[in-house]
Design a protein around this nucleic acid. Structure first.
Lengths: 191, 191
DNA sequence: GTAGAAGTTCACCGATCGGTATACCTACGA
DNA sequence: TCGTAGGTATACCGATCGGTGAACTTCTAC
C-alpha cells in the first residue's frame, strides 16, 4: 500500500469528478458514464486508468482518507499540550466539514457496500479504526487513567457529530466541548 | 399521515422482504424484481400495492420508525425515576440492535437519498429530530439545568454508538455509561 | 349470482447499468 | 524516424433497471 499513484492529468480529473459525485449523490447511484462526462473524458480512458468502477470507488475513498489523515495529523502536531492534542481531531473536524451536510463519506460508503470483501469496505472500516487507535495513543501520551476506554468514547462522539451532519442542527462546538471535558476529567465512572 | 395501512397479506410479505433487503444490502442496490421474488409475489402485485419503488422505500422507513419509536416509548415508560428515563433510549438501543452490524437504517437511507424532497429523506431526518426532541422533554422533566444542550449531546452519543456498529468493536455499554454520567452530572440531586 | 378486490401470468417498454472492441490521433523520447 | 503511452471517437454488448398492459383466476360480500 505504498504506491504514490503517479496519476495522469486525465486520471486526476476523473478522480476529482468521482469524489464530488460519489460523495454528494451516493456511490451506487452514480454511473461511470456520468463520471466520464463530468471529467471531460471518454469512458475508455476511465477504464484504462482505473480498470473498474469498484477500483475507482476504492481510489476515491483511499484518496479522501489520505487527505483527512494528513489534516488530523497536522492538527495534532500543532498542539504543544499533550492534553490538548487528544481533542485535536475535533478541531480538524471543524475544518474538514465546512459546508458539508452529507455526513461521513466512509460511513456512507459502508452503508452502500455491505460486503466486507470489497476493497472499499476495508478502507472505510480501517479509517475508523485508525482514528480509534490515534485517540488511544494520544490519551496514553497525555497520561490519563484508562486510555482505551477514553478513546472509545471519543470515537463515539466523533462519529456522532459526523452522523448528524445532514440534520438542520449545529452540534460540532458542543461535541468538541464535551470531548474536552471528558479528557480533562479523565475517564468517567467505570461501572 | 394518520393512515394505519390495512395491508393485504401479500403487501405485508412484500414490506417484510423489502425491509430485510434494503437494510442489509442498501436501497439503491436492491431492485424491485428481487423484492418481488423474495416475497413470493409478482412484480405486478408489488406495484398494485405500493405504486412505485420510492413509495415502498418510504413505507420501509416509516414502518421501521414506527416500531422503533414504540420500543423507545416502552423503555421510557418503564422507568419510575425521571432521571433514569432520560437514558432509557440507550437501553432500548441495546435491545434494538441485537446482531445488527449494518448501523442505523435512517442514517444509511440519508446516505443513499440526498434529495430532501424525497419522502424517504424526510422520514429519516424526522426520526432523528423526534429523538432529539424526546431527549429534551425527558431532560426537562428530570429538572436538569440546560435540557436543550444535554439533549444535543445525548443525540450525538446515540448516533455515534449506532454509526460504529459496522466496526468490530463493542461500544454500546460504554456509551450508555457515559450517557448516564452526563445526565447525573448535569441534573441536581433528586429529592 | 354476480360484482369487485386481490393476485397471477407473461410479455413488453425505453433507459441505463458496467464494461469492451476497433481504429485513429498526437506528443515525445531514443 | 519510429515506437509507444495517453487519449479520443464511436459503436457495441448482455444484463438489469423501474414500470406498464392486458387477460385470467379466485375468493368473498352483498
Amino acid at each position: 500500500m505504498q504506491e504514490a499513484q503517479p496519476m495522469s492529468p486525465a486520471g486526476r480529473r476523473i478522480a476529482a469528478a468521482a469524489e464530488e459525485l460519489f460523495y454528494n449523490r451516493g456511490i451506487t447511484a452514480v454511473g461511470v458514464d456520468l463520471i466520464a462526462e463530468r471529467s471531460g473524458v471518454t469512458k475508455r480512458t476511465l477504464y484504462n486508468q482505473f480498470g473498474s468502477k469498484d477500483r475507482l470507488v476504492a481510489v476515491y475513498l483511499a484518496e479522501r482518507d489520505r487527505r483527512w489523515r494528513s489534516l488530523v495529523r497536522a492538527a495534532v502536531d500543532a498542539c504543544d499540550d499533550p492534553l490538548e492534542a487528544v481533542t485535536a481531531p475535533f478541531e480538524a473536524l471543524w475544518t474538514w466539514s465546512g459546508a458539508n451536510t452529507r455526513g461521513c463519506a466512509f460511513i456512507n460508503a459502508l452503508a452502500e457496500i455491505p460486503d466486507p470483501a470489497h476493497p472499499a469496505h476495508r478502507i472505510a472500516a480501517d479509517q475508523k479504526l485508525w482514528l480509534l487507535n490515534l485517540f488511544e495513543e494520544l490519551a496514553a501520551a497525555a497520561g490519563g487513567p484508562a486510555p482505551a476506554a477514553l478513546a472509545t468514547r471519543l470515537l463515539v462522539l466523533h462519529e456522532g457529530a459526523l452522523a448528524v451532519q445532514p440534520l438542520p442542527i449545529d452540534v460540532l462546538a458542543q461535541t468538541a466541548d464535551l470531548a474536552r471535558a471528558l479528557v480533562r476529567s479523565g475517564a468517567p465512572p467505570r461501572r
